[in-house]
Design a protein around this nucleic acid. Structure first.
Lengths: 244, 244
DNA sequence: TAGTGGTCTAGACCACAGC
DNA sequence: CTGTGGTCTAGACCACTAT
């Protein structure tokens, strides 16, 4: 049999796919307060009738809204408006080199240190690796138009990146390199204010009294520790920005 | 006709749904480098045959991976491995009151200021509202176990929250309140290091020489300006943390 | 023109809620 | 037991790309 892609209740024309129109319909009810958090919303079958579409189409709309955490669904029970998420802020930390280039500026970098170390007990616990595990250690300064904006102090699991010491960091930043050898990263980070050490102050060309914006990040890939990066930025000429 | 939920190629039993097994299959190929960024991967029909499932099932798997930005799809062309995303960091900024309670501590707050103002030209441009538009202005200090950890200086569009001045901020924080009157927020923020003003230093009980971690956030709901919050935290006893 | 992904249908079986 | 969502099928029409 043939259907007709009937989209009756909302738009007879089909500028948007039916599942998207159903998503919009639900979103509007949530936005204007008709359906509040915790409320039970119409069942899939009810929406099928309202929109004159098949259940798979309604299911896709509700499933996507569930993935976005706007709805919660329980088998045998029904579909509910989720608790509000407050703010989920998405910081997109791309390659710092790419970031700089996107601002129309020139990126350059200098390798200060590049060696091999053994994990101490503190690191072993924090990174969930064996004490004494082999790690590579690099310290690199990043410049934007020849002005230092980041000192990147990094530890990398030698097992994950055995050729780490042989890379040319003028071509690829450590971050970019690690994305290739250890894709699909996840982890945690902190952002805080710290005074620089004498060495970091010298590299960033700031006085030791100038506080820095410091991001510390531990990265795992496929459940295995990959890298820990501690990134120091001069507080007087650097800020993080993002959208959510 | 009856099917058999055939999951042939990977798992004859069905511990996981077929679409999830297909997602895993693709993920493994990307993780172990068999399929690299930019590579063309098998078509839907090819995967249908491999897994002995219907096209809708394969389609769901590939569509979800596309939403996660692991794949890119082009009509008429094919499905490709996406460029790596570098790091997408998800800061979850929940209610500060809830954050404090989750740490097992006591939240309290004090309202320092609460009044009505008119948008100046700078604010009008930044918030995309009319100059002279009515805004409510609040300054609130948040305490964790009676220690000040945030001064929240906030502007709110009076049209969005006409009863803003009448709220009891001991019950709900402004953030929590705004989530109710203006759901599904989005916007931008910056995080930077700043020295406090005399007033802010006094409220946070820190010297004026103590740098602060400052988050400035502009929030829109349904494309209309909702609020601008400037949150000052003492740099010596506060940090942002998150996962990604 | 042949092949790709984008969307949709009208069924179906299942696990699970609540009565 | 009925009703809910979770998943799946075997088709289909369409817009688009590549040849």
């Amino acid at each position: 049999m043939r259907h007709k892609r009937a989209v009756a209740a909302i738009t007879p024309s089909l500028a948007q796919p039916a599942y998207q129109q159903i998503k919009n319909y639900v979103l509007e009810h949530i936005q204007n307060g008709t359906w509040k958090e915790g409320d039970l919303i119409p069942t899939e079958l009810a929406l099928c009738e309202t929109f004159k579409v098949s259940r798979m189409t309604v299911n896709r709309a509700l499933r996507e809204l569930t993935t976005d955490q706007l709805l919660v669904r329980y088998k045998g029970s029904g579909t509910y408006v989720a608790q509000p998420k407050f703010q989920s802020t998405l910081i997109e930390i791309r390659s710092i080199a790419q970031d700089i280039r996107d601002r129309g500026h020139r990126h350059s970098s200098k390798v200060l240190q590049l060696d091999s170390v053994r994990a101490n007990d503190l690191q072993a616990r924090r990174f969930q690796i064996a004490p004494g595990a082999k790690l590579f250690h690099s310290v690199i300064v990043h410049y934007e138009n020849d002005i230092a904006i980041q000192v990147e102090d990094r530890l990398v699991d030698a097992a994950v990146a055995p050729d780490y010491l042989e890379q040319d960091w003028q071509v690829l930043t450590p971050n970019e390199y690690l994305m290739r050898v250890a894709p699909l990263p996840n982890g945690q980070y902190t952002i805080e204010v710290k005074l620089p050490t004498k060495e970091i102050a010298a590299q960033l060309d700031i006085p030791m009294s100038q506080p820095c914006l410091v991001m510390d990040r531990v990265t795992f890939s496929n459940r295995a520790f990959t890298s820990n990066a501690c990134m120091w930025h001069p507080g007087n000429r650097y800020k993080f920005a993002g959208k959510y």
